[in-house]
Computed example of a mutant assay.
Amino acid sequence: MALNATLHTVTVHLADVDRGVYEELELRVARHPSETAEYMLTRILAYCLEYEEGVAFSDGGVSSTDVPPVLVRDLTGRLTTWIDVGSPDADRIHRASKLADRVAVYTHRDPAKVLAQLPAKRIHRADRIPVYSFDRAVIDAATSALDRRNTLTLSITDRHVFLELNGTALSTSIEEHRLT
């Protein structure tokens, strides 16, 4: 018997001073049985940090190779931004950079290991693809506060994230890395 996804609700109070985005979001996030809490939290943070009109979690699930975990579509339905999470392989990122105008990767893993597996010479427009990482200790502390119903206050200033998740307050810088 296959296990079902667990539905998490997240009320987000988003204040992204860097981009001038101030929103109250009600997210329903399905967590696949094979998905770690760290991956799901990184997916939620990527959604918030990339928030704009047309942003969505994909319907393909965490194991889909055809769609990213988070994406942005314009009003015509065209994929404009491919937002990957975790440790995607070079072929996936190469394909993404051909399909979307912009590609970004958010990882909760060791960024040196993620970058080492992504040889830039095999990736289309590699020099334009940022890889963002979060402090692993902060991700671990935040995931221990995750529940089925969550309240997340997220403030971003100068690429520094201040977050409070269900009463647990944390802060971390968003480190940006490049493939080249």
Score class of each variant (00 low, 15 high):
residue 100 A to P: 05
residue 15 A to I: 02
residue 76 T to N: 10
residue 61 G to I: 04
residue 108 H to G: 04
residue 128 R to M: 14
residue 175 E to N: 13
residue 144 S to E: 15
residue 159 R to L: 11
residue 132 Y to I: 11
residue 152 L to V: 10
residue 147 D to K: 14
residue 59 D to R: 15
residue 136 R to V: 11
residue 112 A to V: 01
residue 95 R to K: 13
residue 134 F to Y: 09
residue 97 S to A: 12
residue 74 D to W: 09
residue 135 D to V: 07
residue 45 L to E: 01
residue 111 P to H: 07
residue 154 L to R: 05
residue 180 T to C: 07
residue 87 S to K: 13
residue 65 T to S: 10
residue 104 A to Q: 09
residue 36 T to Y: 00
residue 30 A to V: 02
residue 51 Y to F: 13
residue 90 A to Y: 02
residue 96 A to R: 03
residue 160 H to Q: 04
residue 2 A to L: 10
residue 34 S to W: 02
residue 23 E to Y: 01
residue 47 Y to T: 10
residue 146 L to F: 00
residue 81 T to F: 05
residue 165 L to W: 06
residue 57 F to C: 01
residue 122 R to W: 12
residue 175 E to I: 10
residue 9 T to E: 10
residue 114 V to L: 14
residue 96 A to V: 03
residue 116 A to H: 12
residue 90 A to I: 00
residue 167 G to K: 05
residue 85 V to L: 12
residue 157 T to H: 09
residue 58 S to K: 02
residue 48 C to P: 05
residue 49 L to K: 05
residue 8 H to T: 02
residue 55 V to T: 10
residue 85 V to M: 13
residue 155 S to L: 11
residue 26 E to P: 00
residue 119 P to E: 12
residue 19 R to H: 14
residue 16 D to S: 01
residue 134 F to N: 03
residue 86 G to Y: 01
residue 73 R to I: 01
residue 42 T to N: 01
residue 122 R to N: 13
residue 90 A to R: 02
residue 117 Q to R: 15
residue 62 V to C: 06
residue 154 L to D: 04
residue 119 P to W: 12
residue 100 A to E: 12
residue 11 T to S: 05
residue 154 L to A: 06
residue 178 R to D: 02
residue 90 A to K: 02
residue 71 L to C: 03
residue 129 I to Y: 12
residue 54 G to Q: 12
residue 83 I to G: 08
residue 115 L to R: 07
residue 34 S to V: 08
residue 48 C to M: 03
residue 68 P to F: 10
